[in-house]
Design a protein around this nucleic acid. Sequence first.
DNA 1: TGAAATGTTGGGGCG
DNA 2: ACGCCCCAACATTTC
Length: 483
Amino acid sequence: MSASSPVLVWFRQDLRIADNPALAAAVDSERPILAVYILDEVSDGIRPHGGASRWWLHHSLESLASDLRGRGVSLILRRGAAAGVLSDLIEESDAGAVYWNRCYEPWAVARDTAIKEQLKSADVAAESFNGSLLLEPWQIETQQGDPYKVFTPFWKQLREVYRLPDAVEVPDELPRAADVASDDLTDWDLLHTAPDWAGGIRETWTVGEDAARDLLAAFLDGPVADYPDDRNRPDRPGTSRLSPYLHWGEIGPDQVWRAAAPLLDKGGATAKGAESLLRELAWRDFNHHLMFHFPEIATENWKSNFDDFTWKDDPGGLAVWQKGQTGYPFVDAGMRELWHTGWMHNRVRMVVASFLIKDLLVHWRDGEAWFWDTLVDADLANNAGGWQWVAGSGADAAPFFRIFNPITQGEKFDPDGEYVRRWVPELAKLPSKWIHKPWDAPGEVLAEADVRLGENYPEPMVDHKGARARALEAYKAIKSEES
DNA sequence: TGAAATGTTGGGGCG
DNA sequence: ACGCCCCAACATTTC
């Protein structure tokens, strides 16, 4: 290739300019830069984005394109199988190199490996980088040389091995390559299928790397000190809410670590909070570590004895759960928060997942699919990891018999019922004492609060006590074949 | 990163 | 003063 042939920077789940290793390497190469995003919904094994993800992606691409434009570079949009699109782009632009940051979905690994081969045999330099994880999945292993299957030793080892890289600076002006044709973002129709697209999600989120940085700074400036407790409180703004930004790479985990690490030396609550945040960040790495080494974890029970579990085929029950009409206020609040905002507090994710799997005996895969469609932070490794954790079928998972009680979880983590009142307004006037179990409230209390069970708020769709017993009974059948 | 059932202990009422 | 029972509070076991 000639010295002036451009470098193609292939953006994927790294939709940021700051601290982006692939982009930084392109800058270092001193060649003109061609930035591209490919909407690939057709490569082998790929799972298309859900509705909420498409909404986020649309705005994230707008934001990235605008940031790049400010530095003199256009973001080229193309659609189709990545391998073919890349060869077209190389042909059209005479690019001599393609740089990208790695993804870890099984289909992405397979596709990108093949693409790397293809590029090399066409004499195009192909380089991939780590822009999404603290450590690559192959960078640490147990003393036996195996992948980690338990979080705590993984976390310990990560802290031993991880060295925070220096931040990479990106110049205000990037060397621009001659433009090639780009799709029009609006033609991709990404906004059409998003849940509640007209309102809630838009009001809840500001997409883009500037917003991510602001959110992180604001979180570390105060709330982090209360994080160890408040991260369990859906009624409080106690979490970082960084999950969608991390998934799309609008912020990278190194950037979070870089900002939080200085707090570790401060001692007291702030240090404890920062420690807790970084531990959660490491769960993200752990889930990707698992998915890289056991790609089937995204769709199959990691513990194979769960293959014989007698799940119920219950589309009606699933739909009631999806709509947040189970009659359990804490569960319904979570499901409605999800539908309205594209996000759900993690404590509540565990409770609603436990309810679907154990109270309704519906396969975790159905819940995973709903989250995939409705979460703006939908991430294959984290989503499947979370669901398998709750189901008890995953690596280092909660045991099956750990069944959440939706009433006591609500009383513990939403003691004043504020979270329920926000998302289940038909119960807003109930006193806190009854808000997590309206069916136990005296008739006059319900009347006073305008709650008519079975009319304007459902009766519980199952009796939790009985459902719990039923789940434990169903588990007995596969317990003996525990692997 | 549970919850429920079962077991233990110790104070107080009471004959 | 003693034994007995009750039951809350806490601990342990089980699912």
